[in-house]
Amino acid sequence: MAIEHRGPYQWRVRIRRRGFPTMSRTFETKSEAEAWERMILTEMDRGVFVSRREAESTTLSECLDRYAREIVPEKKGQRQELGRIRILKAHPLASCYMASIRSVDIAALRDQLLAEGKKPSTVVKYLAILSHLFNIARREWGMESLANPVELVRKPTVRNARERRLEGDEEERLLEACRQQGNPWLEPLVIIAIETAMRKGEILGLTWEDVNLNDRVAYLRETKNGEPREVPLSTRACQVLKSLPRSISGRIFQTTDYATRKAFIKACKRAGIEDLRFHDLRHEATSRLAEVYQAQELAKITGHKDLKMVLRYYHPRGKDLAKKLG
């Protein structure tokens, strides 16, 4: 055991004890070095010592790289996840050693992201990556001494519940604008979304093997909650699917998420429809299907495990409810 003065603002502690790994760390002041030495020796004496070497010699940037290699490939939405990791790596916090990152640092990152104009829901996704990374590092990457500083930080309040539905002649105007777009797949995509309440990614992932037009059922293998489900097809949905050409790839819709998103924005602008997102069509479809199915059946169709989530997508119009009173 020794504390060595190596120059201005450099006090190095080296601890050697039989049965334990050699520990070494450099501090700016002697008092910090002595405090760290006392802490490590006390933990060794009490039999609760856990090596901090890995956490003290590995930066957040290095862990983000490993997370991208080992963890992200097992996730859905890999492209978006990798994009967020690139942004985190560009932050000064990425150069810090894992053991030195505190909750105050995570809170500062949170506030900076919000100040840059990122939505609370987006910031929560960044924090979720960091929290998962710290937990993985502690459990699987030899950093057992590591605490998760993200768990101590307040998450931004997310208020992203929407009640946007198609009003008046918006559906007709939207479909007409879709037909005038350069993407021939947009109109059938919109109709299928309105008729089935499927997510955009689920529709784009459909193959002809997934659809049984005789039984009027679409089988979704890849879903957001990870569980496959069957979705009933209306007469209108079946007619649209029957009209589509078939390709060697087997995919029903020969377009991409990016192309669909851009085309939909242009169609809404052309139709003079404001504040409408493609995902709002899922709200529209769920509200329509709620007039036919009971809540438990509706949850099976939409893929929600919690009936509370179904209610987030069910937006009956007051005038329609009034009609039921007679």
Rank of each mutant, 00 (worst) to 15 (best):
T260P: 02
Q80C: 05
H132Y: 13
V50C: 12
K300L: 00
F20E: 01
E297V: 03
L114G: 02
I129G: 00
A35W: 02
R38S: 00
K200G: 14
Q239R: 03
E4F: 02
M23K: 03
Y219R: 15
D215K: 14
W36A: 03
V72P: 08
A237K: 02
A108C: 09
L93K: 06
M98R: 05
S95F: 14
R246H: 13
S100A: 15
C63D: 02
L189T: 01
T223K: 09
S247P: 03
D105Y: 10
Y97N: 09
T302I: 08
R179L: 07
E4H: 13
F20L: 00
A33I: 04
T235L: 14
R18P: 08
S103H: 13
E116A: 14
D257T: 13
L241N: 06
A115V: 05
E222R: 09
E291D: 02
R138Y: 12
T255I: 12
A271P: 01
S145G: 07
S95E: 15
W141R: 11
S121W: 03
I252V: 13
A137Y: 07
H5Q: 11
P245D: 03
I194P: 03
K324F: 13
I248M: 15
V310T: 11
L93F: 11
Y314A: 08
E187Q: 04
L206T: 07
K75Y: 11
A161P: 09
Q78R: 14
E187M: 04
E167Y: 08
A271R: 02
N225S: 01
E43R: 12
D306T: 00
V158K: 11
K118C: 07
